[in-house]
Design a binder for these strands. Sequence first.
DNA 1: ACATAATATTAGCCAAGGCTAAATTTATTC
DNA 2: GAATAAATTTAGCCTTGGCTAATATTATGT
Lengths: 165, 165
Amino acid sequence: MTEAMISESVEDYLEAIFQINQQQQVSRPKDICKMLNVTAPSVTKALKLLAQLGFVNYAPFGMVTLTPAGEKAAKDVVHRHEGLSSFLVNVLGVDEKRASETACKMEHIIAPDIIERFISYSKFVQNSDLCGPEFFKKFLKFASRKNASTKSTKSKSSKSSRKEQ
Amino acid sequence: MTEAMISESVEDYLEAIFQINQQQQVSRPKDICKMLNVTAPSVTKALKLLAQLGFVNYAPFGMVTLTPAGEKAAKDVVHRHEGLSSFLVNVLGVDEKRASETACKMEHIIAPDIIERFISYSKFVQNSDLCGPEFFKKFLKFASRKNASTKSTKSKSSKSSRKEQ
DNA sequence: ACATAATATTAGCCAAGGCTAAATTTATTC
DNA sequence: GAATAAATTTAGCCTTGGCTAATATTATGT
């Protein structure tokens, strides 16, 4: 009923600020620009919105920190991001960089309980000895075989299955 | 280099038109409205764009059909949709309806080669006897255990994808 | 065939979230 | 402590893709 709905963009900013603050206590707009690949005016505008939503402490020309609510929301996004990213890496064998990029998009659009399923699955497969450690290797072989016979992507190089661009 | 980039919205319209045409040869704007939960003017506007992109045959007050290019693009979207949907149902145990809703969002944002991974995985797990038929059941149990201890979703169901303002 | 209902279209608005250019503020350097 | 550089903000534009209200067209029922 309350809760105001958080847009994808807002989630991205929260996540970015959280990450930056991990390393330097506070965020400056410039850092956020770099992290999200947007221009400075976009960041200013976003910060005003975040402040208005009660997620950040912000005053013009000042440093940016997360409020408790912002911290909570950010941690939630990060949880989803990391869970999905793990899934992509550990279950599907996607390389780290692309897994993170992909998680970054998935995290906003998939319902939380389904995201938890992804996370559970990832954990399950890793713990489970129902299928040996063979399992993952076999899948990678299976997937690359499929890949070979598929028009799907233009996939530039694709010379060695993993890490294609 | 060419290829013009297809937006999410365009993909949704293509998919909808394709599905409708499966059952009734041609689509009328009204059907598209219903399928996508948008208003008639939105459909008109979209159809003009689709026609301009060369994906549909459309004249005001006329029926809508897909051009060969539109057909190709639509089939591609449908392939991704069904593959992802299968994955969600068969690997993660999500129910059909929500799987379809979720696939509908995932299909636009995940790179094609990664979508193929999802699809491969789904097939692999189903064929593979590396892990018995126990595997899926055990996972469901595992997941519901996890689930119990999670606040996760209010899930409000949002009956049909778009438009929750 | 004509009145009414159903469909489509046009016109124009709105919000989100980018962007550039210009102005302002803060930092740095001699 | 000026002068310049760097960072930030303001102002205003643009595109996408919805929407409503009003208009126009097509279909239907008697």
